[in-house]
Design a protein around this nucleic acid. Sequence first.
DNA 1: CCGATAACTAAACAATCGTTTAGTTATTTT
DNA 2: AAAATAACTAAACGATTGTTTAGTTATCGG
Lengths: 187, 187
Amino acid sequence: MARKKAYIEEEVIEKAMRLFWRNGYESTSMQMLEKEMGINKFSIYSSFGSKHGVFLESLKSYKKKVNSILDKFKNSTNGVEGIKEFFYDSVNICHQEGNQKGCLISNTYNEFSESEDELVKGEMTSFMDNLKTLLIAKLRMDGNKDEETITKQANFLLLAKHGLAAASRVNSRQEIEDYIEMTFKNL
Amino acid sequence: MARKKAYIEEEVIEKAMRLFWRNGYESTSMQMLEKEMGINKFSIYSSFGSKHGVFLESLKSYKKKVNSILDKFKNSTNGVEGIKEFFYDSVNICHQEGNQKGCLISNTYNEFSESEDELVKGEMTSFMDNLKTLLIAKLRMDGNKDEETITKQANFLLLAKHGLAAASRVNSRQEIEDYIEMTFKNL
DNA sequence: CCGATAACTAAACAATCGTTTAGTTATTTT
DNA sequence: AAAATAACTAAACGATTGTTTAGTTATCGG
């Protein structure tokens, strides 16, 4: 053994994640990452291999934030009301005071939609697919809908989630909550 | 006078616009623009000044497409039904067969949200503001809503438009239409 | 048909991109 | 304390970014 790392990987990734969250992948340079993470390029490369590697770890870091509210959502037995609560919880992650940067997953989904990076694209689509499956399961709970309605409503909610991400960028808290209420008005 | 241009500016901008539409601003390089527009870098610079200039002209070109359906929308006297028709018309622009690239304005709005390019950002926000004003005017037409409801519904529809843009990237025509129907279910 | 002029080609520009490498510093173990 | 080893600093890497410039070709008016 020899010299110890002067930084904690989890901590510097958290910082990198916030940078990617704000600016996206392409617009974030290694120079910016160096500055924000507070460590040298060499350290970044020895820890994460590449800029792409840093991004993948950043996505994991973001997913950890999301998983905390996703777990609550999974365990909910409230049907549509549970989905609505999940939407409200999402706002707490996305709509940070001051910096309005939306949802990292939604942002990444947009930025990589026409990319050839199948790895990141795959991560995003599988996340969306899982969420859709989850939405369907919750919609079934209320037990008063046919399967066709459930499918339509699940698609609707998945797209409404994108709208929510857009909202958390430009709208006020009150406007966002109004949007959620209106979304769930007729489900 | 001397030699004539071997290309029509309007035509090459149309091609550039499609490239920006598919890949966004940052991910589109001058090399790609050269190839797609079919003219030399020099010609691009002598006609449009910079990559940024090409992008601004491309936005204008896209807005021309949008204006055709926007004019119809402005002249509509159908209230909420008119808005719904406008949403359906939007799909015809955004949801191109094969290439699913969403809405250029919505894409640009996302890509430039944290940018320091106040010019492009201004163009986008003013477009959104105008659309919101238009939505409010149409919502008032039905004459059975108070101002608070109108404001909420206008915000809701503006965000739903972002969801529609996301939908035109990944969803089928049928799913998109289902989304529109569900959006207007109780307005 | 010739001289003027603008559009073309192609090469090079400086700056920045992500990445690597050589050399130095600090910590651990024997 | 000395040898070993891993983390650090800093400079340079080739490739690509957007942009410019010199040199050539084509078309116009006289």
